[in-house]
Amino acid sequence: MSKIAILFPGQGSQKVGMGKEAHDQSRVAQEIFQSADNELNFSLSDIIFQGPEEELKLTYHTQPALLTTSIALYKWLQAKVDIQPSFVAGHSLGEYAALVAASSLSFEDAVSAVYQRGLYMDQAVPAGVGAMSAILNLDRAVLDQICAETSTPDNVVQAANYNCPGQIVISGHADAVRVAGEKALEAGARKVVPLAVSGPFHSALMQPAADKLQDKLATLSFHDANIPVVTNVTARPITIASDIQEALVRQVASPVLWEDTIRYLLQEGVDTFVEVGSGSVLAGLTRKVDRKVTMLNVQDQATLEKTISHFVDKNGRNDD
């Protein structure tokens, strides 16, 4: 029997206008956008739908904007067809959407948490101190060794995202990231791509943000997940509320084990992945791990209808 995993994207997938069709055509989606505006006490939906892009790209706007869009699209999908996922997972920030989908965290608590998460991450490191680069086509063990040799207590560089075979992102102090990138090229990497980000995310430099987030999360109500959530920090499923809360804190300054997450899901028999949210970044990463899987996407009316058709055809009925 087919197993389904729902995936939620993270930062980098945002674009002005995302989720607008869901807002305009679905009452349940519209309520999610309104709920975000109410919870944050400003019009996040205006920033999402109208921009400007510079405002949307501010990490404390990007994070709640992507979460809101993902959950609005998920509610839109749920209202149209009954999908029973075996697992949920999200890339970095996307893990919060996964937790909302698994009823571990209310949407209101989640959007409040990621807004603060964005502020804490933005404040953790002064502008220009940190950097991130994508390293293409270099063996994981080789890059890990380069980071270990380059990094010092005062000049840190480490893997931040193990995205897929041939794509690993490194993060840390700008000089250490640059040197590690040069060594990676010498070791045979095809390319090093500096990323236009506001901070060295998922590195030890984010520990001040993790500490503040721990205090924020302690004020929220976590529940045991009703769908296993494959978490970034271990690439293994968790359902217990206290474990989920701890994983969210650890995630801020730890690498995102995305390739490992997809491999775990494949190992568990998942053969159908549905990416719910802006863009299709995770679809591309998943196909780099296994091209044979069924990869669906929900980000607008056209992709929603294609996904519904897949499940209606498979089930022989529409559960609208």
Rank of each mutant, 00 (worst) to 15 (best):
167 Q>V: 11
187 A>S: 15
186 E>N: 11
200 P>W: 00
164 C>L: 08
201 F>R: 01
193 V>A: 09
187 A>I: 09
197 V>E: 11
206 M>P: 11
189 A>Q: 07
190 R>M: 06
201 F>H: 01
164 C>T: 12
195 L>Q: 11
206 M>V: 02
167 Q>M: 12
158 Q>E: 13
163 N>I: 13
164 C>K: 07
175 D>E: 15
209 A>C: 08
168 I>Y: 07
167 Q>G: 12
154 D>P: 00
193 V>Y: 12
171 S>R: 02
163 N>V: 12
184 A>N: 10
194 P>S: 04
207 Q>I: 11
161 N>Q: 14
184 A>L: 04
195 L>H: 05
156 V>T: 10
203 S>L: 04
202 H>G: 03
175 D>L: 04
174 A>F: 09
197 V>P: 10
188 G>Y: 08
167 Q>S: 11
200 P>D: 08
157 V>R: 00
188 G>M: 09
176 A>P: 03
181 G>S: 13
159 A>C: 15
180 A>K: 13
192 V>D: 02
191 K>A: 14
165 P>L: 07
188 G>D: 10
160 A>R: 04
178 R>I: 15
159 A>I: 14
198 S>P: 05
163 N>Y: 10
207 Q>P: 01
182 E>A: 13
205 L>Y: 04
202 H>R: 09
196 A>T: 06
152 T>F: 06
157 V>K: 01
202 H>E: 11
184 A>C: 05
175 D>V: 12
200 P>L: 03
203 S>H: 03
